[in-house]
């Protein structure tokens, strides 16, 4: 039985998805990266293989997300693709007439504008993380609350309090101030959700033409209060798909499927058993010029698989170049 694997290694969570030859989802997995992308990918492969039939043959594998190059080397990816393309491809598969995609993850957020099934514009957040999941995580932590509880409590709000959402630091001092004034915690929490939405629309969504249908995905789409805040702010329906948190992985698998079936190539995928292999990462400072680049390298049994991080290609080594 043939299948295609997509892996999305984000800053906070890692997502895996396996599609069959008709592009139907066979298995999906969502697990925290915990700052250890390599072992998380290995663990993810082990867990997802248990959900799959034994006679499965992976005809193509791809990676996306901020650790896509690292993950690509480990699993033997046939292609490594950016998050914008993969998210859009996945959403188009389920909602062909989608015009706007909101994606809010742990450390970054994006907006993708689609017209007639083609990406026409996109934006990602810059230096500021105020409109992302980590903003909520941080506040939940401070209130000694799980992120699920934060979402639930916020939904109970009757009269939301306005929180300054320009910056995480200001939002926090504003929240403390409102708490000390005696406002109800539910109202403060929903105010926080509204602040995140405003921040997202004013930063990432700046100058973008936001037309329905709007699809909201990424980890933050789990938060029903944020969905509600978006709906109120834009006065339109916000679609949250069942597998919204693994859309990047699904999109990667779809792109792999498309390219591998067209090209008749043999997959480079290294089998699920790579979860037993030992990988080492290390880094060193290159002293060849005053740039002092920090070179990171990935090795297996003393053999260097890949190096990156340099401003020139002195140390660059990818599996392709070492094969020759």
């Amino acid at each position: 039985m043939e299948a295609y694997l997509g892996i999305d290694v984000g800053s906070v969570t890692t997502k895996l998805a396996v599609l069959n030859k008709d592009a139907e989802l066979m298995a999906a997995l969502y697990l925290p990266t915990q700052g250890k992308p390599i072992t998380t990918v290995q663990e993810g492969l082990r867990q997802i293989s248990e959900q799959l039939p034994k006679d499965l043959e992976i005809r193509g594998a791809g990676t996306t997300g901020s650790a896509r190059y690292l993950a690509g080397v480990i699993v033997g990816a046939d292609l490594v693709r950016n998050e914008i393309t993969t998210h859009a491809v996945a959403t188009l598969q389920y909602i062909p007439d989608v015009q706007t995609i909101f994606e809010i993850g742990g450390q970054d957020s994006k907006i993708i504008i689609i017209r007639d099934g083609i990406i026409t514009d996109f934006a990602m957040n810059t230096v500021c993380a105020a409109g992302t999941g980590s903003f909520l995580d941080h506040q939940a932590l401070r209130l000694n609350m799980s992120i699920e509880e934060l979402s639930q409590r916020a939904m109970e709000s009757q009269k939301p309090v306005r929180i300054a959402g320009r910056c995480t630091v200001f939002a926090e001092s504003d929240m403390i101030h409102k708490q000390q004034m005696g406002y109800r915690i539910e109202d403060i929490l929903y105010g926080l959700c509204q602040a995140l939405v405003r921040n997202y629309l004013n930063n990432v969504g700046l100058g973008k033409e936001i037309n329905p249908p709007i699809v909201f995905q990424g980890g933050v789409a789990f938060n029903r209060a944020i969905v509600k805040a978006f709906q109120e702010e834009l006065n339109t329906e916000i679609i949250v798909l069942p597998h919204h948190e693994v859309m990047g992985a699904i999109g990667t698998a779809l792109v792999v499927h498309e390219e591998m079936s067209a090209g008749q190539r043999e997959s480079q995928f290294k089998e699920f058993s790579i979860s037993d292999l030992e990988y080492h990462t290390s880094s060193f400072e290159c002293k060849a010029c005053p740039n002092l680049c920090e070179i990171a390298q990935l090795s297996q049994n003393d053999q260097v698989l890949a190096r990156w991080g340099g401003r020139c290609d002195r140390w660059e080594r990818s599996p392709e170049s070492s094969r020759h």
Binding site: N82, I119, M124, V127
Partner: peptide, 23 residues
């Protein structure tokens, strides 16, 4: 800016070119 990681620039460039090629 001075903290901009190369990865952020590469991701955006890749996505932009991908958008144009798919179009």
């Amino acid at each position: 800016d001075e903290h901009t990681s190369e990865v952020g620039i590469i991701t955006r460039l890749e996505a932009f070119m991908d958008m144009i090629y798919r179009k």
